[in-house]
Simulated scan of single mutants.
Amino acid sequence: MLTRRHLLTASAAALAAPMAPRRLWAASTLTLGSTQIDTLSDGNLVLPGDFILGGMPQEEVQAIAARYGLPTDQLTPPCNVTLLRDGTNTVLFDVGAGPDFQPSAGKLAEALEAIGLTPDDITHVLFTHGHPDHLWGLLDDFDEPVFPNAAYMIGQTEFDYWTNPDTVSSIGEARATFAVGAARRLALIGDRIRLLVDGDEPLPGIAARLTPGHTPGHMAFDIAGPSPATVLGDCIANHHVAFERPEWASGSDQDAATAAATRVALLDRLVSDGHAIIGYHLPGGGIGRVERAETGYRFVEAV
């Protein structure tokens, strides 16, 4: 069952000072039998429009942006961290940006507090990929894991890529800090991490799916249930051009051609299989479904 809710919460400081600003957390809930999935806001990114839209046919880009009420000079995609609870395990898919990436992101701790959880409650962390807004929330200010009781899992290809010392010199200047940050964080949990390959079952009812292109070893995760769902990460990274024109290359992808092929195949499968989807940068908490459109597809938010 797909439902949507909004949580209005206050930080501890706001509780102590009633006139302090309160944060509205957008969240969605998806129930799959006895499993509950919540998305928690880590805030949002602030990106130049051409980071995603650059190199696309600009006349059509402008038309798509107008349909969605989007500017093309700057985009502010939300960051939705997925939380799964099945009565035994409390699982995060990615951990947000932490304090060192962008000031508009890194809010996961507040979101967990809003639903009565602490980092100690997390039993497992599954990473879709190693970009800062998904990985850099791993460590605290003392380089200790924020989630001390968690087991960690990431794709073998993804781990090998970010821990390869050659990556920092081959990834390009704009992403060099991504490589340094990922290598440092993954090294600090290297003895606690399980490496996954396509088709592995990291936990009962969860299947890892290799979805490369955004990064070399990006993984999505299929979650079994009466109405199955797929945690997308960034293999479908926005609700506009990625759906309407999935075959277009995007500047946000490290291997744009592979990422486009992944999107085209994945969207077709998601419609055919009837999966709900949970997208890290999709609006309204990120939970919804895919529909075919006259050209391409559309994202339908949970209501």
Rank of each mutant, 00 (worst) to 15 (best):
F221P: 05
V81A: 00
T167F: 04
V290P: 02
Y280H: 15
F127Q: 10
L232N: 05
P204T: 07
R23Y: 06
F101E: 01
F147R: 07
A174T: 14
L8F: 14
D222K: 00
A17K: 09
V125H: 06
V241W: 12
K107T: 09
G33H: 10
A26F: 09
L138D: 07
Q36E: 06
I122Y: 11
V146M: 06
G251H: 08
I37D: 03
L8Y: 10
G69H: 01
D141H: 15
G98K: 08
P18H: 01
W248G: 14
D133H: 12
Y280W: 04
D94W: 00
H275I: 06
F51V: 10
G96Y: 05
H239P: 06
D143H: 05
I64N: 01
R23E: 09
V231Q: 02
V197M: 00
A14P: 03
R192W: 07
D42V: 05
G137S: 04
P165R: 14
H214A: 13
L126M: 15
G55F: 02
D120F: 04
R5Y: 06
V180E: 13
L210K: 02
S227P: 01
P21C: 04
L83I: 11
V61I: 04
L203Y: 06
V180M: 13
I52E: 01
I171F: 03
S41V: 02
D160G: 03
V300N: 08
P212A: 03
I236N: 02
S11G: 08
N44A: 13
V61Y: 02
T3I: 12
A174R: 15
A224H: 07
I277P: 07
A302Q: 06
P148E: 12
I122A: 09
L24F: 01
V81Y: 00
T82F: 02
M219V: 05
K107L: 15
D255K: 01
H6L: 14
R263Q: 10
S250A: 10
R194F: 03
I115E: 08
A302R: 02
N149Y: 04
G130A: 13
T31I: 11
A12T: 15
T258R: 10
T258I: 13
W25R: 13
I278P: 05
A10S: 14
P78N: 06
G96Q: 02
H239K: 12
A187V: 01
A26C: 07
A293I: 03
A20N: 10
G190V: 11
I278A: 05
P204S: 09
V125F: 07
H275T: 12
T88F: 03
F101R: 08
